[in-house]
Amino acid sequence: MGQIVLNKVQKKFGDVEVIPPLDLTIADGEFAVFVGPSGCGKSTLLRLIAGLEDVTSGSIQIDGKEASDAPPAKRGLAMVFQSYALYPHMSVRKNIAFPLRMAKMDKAEIDKRVTSAASVLNLTDYLDRRPGQLSGGQRQRVAIGRAIVREPSAFLFDEPLSNLDAALRVGMRLEISELHKRLDTTMVYVTHDQVEAMTMADKIVVLQAGVIEQVGSPLELYHTPRNVFVAGFIGSPKMNLIEGALAEQHNAKTIGIRPEHVQVATTQSDGALQGTVGVAEHLGSDTFIHIHGVAGCDPMTVRAAGDVTVRHGDTVYLTPDATQIHRFDNDGIRIP
């Protein structure tokens, strides 16, 4: 139902090519996340799918139908905007009903759908308020409500959580994931936050400068990043990327080791790297230790389970898990 296929899609603004020709298939019912640093073209890509921008060349198929030239309204997609884009002069009820009204649906059916959407999203008590009287989280839910009543073939989310505070963001993240499980509809979600990508996605599309760096499930990206960029972008804290002598020992230009794959000890052992503690961040469940003095990687970050008592200036010894070392060649491409 909600399959989206991009075929050699290219976008230029004037002479500037923001998205070089690109192929991508998003399967029906899949939760796809476009992630990348700001300016990587992920929002443009979403707007191309939505029909808010024209493709310069290439084609977009939705549900197996050619949609490149269809206006937004005819694509059967619903979109949730970063700023929510609610209609400030309408009540919540009217906001949610608007797409149905535009579709000339009959009154009873509109009421039924609005009521059910409101109850799903806990908005029943707010139906007669204006968006201006709601909190950020509630507004976000109204925007989602407006999207789900249309029963679209796919949902598009453009950084929907970035205007919310941290606590609310975690809650909404769960709600959207739950919604996806329940509706089982295709969702395309744009974010710059790799945590959102990892926690929500079935499929992550990592973009940089309009180019797809890698497509895969969250764990594929985590375990086998295709290149240095993906390796550094996915995972928190970031993967340690080490160049120089240490990398050459592994016959690579660069090697990467995730903070959680490094053992830290205060006593010396064979083959361990030596360093000095800069800052130790205690989260209770984990401790992130930033270590200076390791050749080719400064600072090196280590994630130790539980509470580890090290202080600024302490000398520590690091042992990377040899099975978890990622190797990259001169072009930054993964060596299998």
């Binding site: 603004f13 029909g51 808010l52 921008e53 024209d54 206006p71």
Partner: peptide, 8 residues
């Protein structure tokens, strides 16, 4: 930042 539709 607009489509051909909206420009015409």
């Amino acid at each position: 930042m607009a489509t051909q539709h909206s420009r015409s």
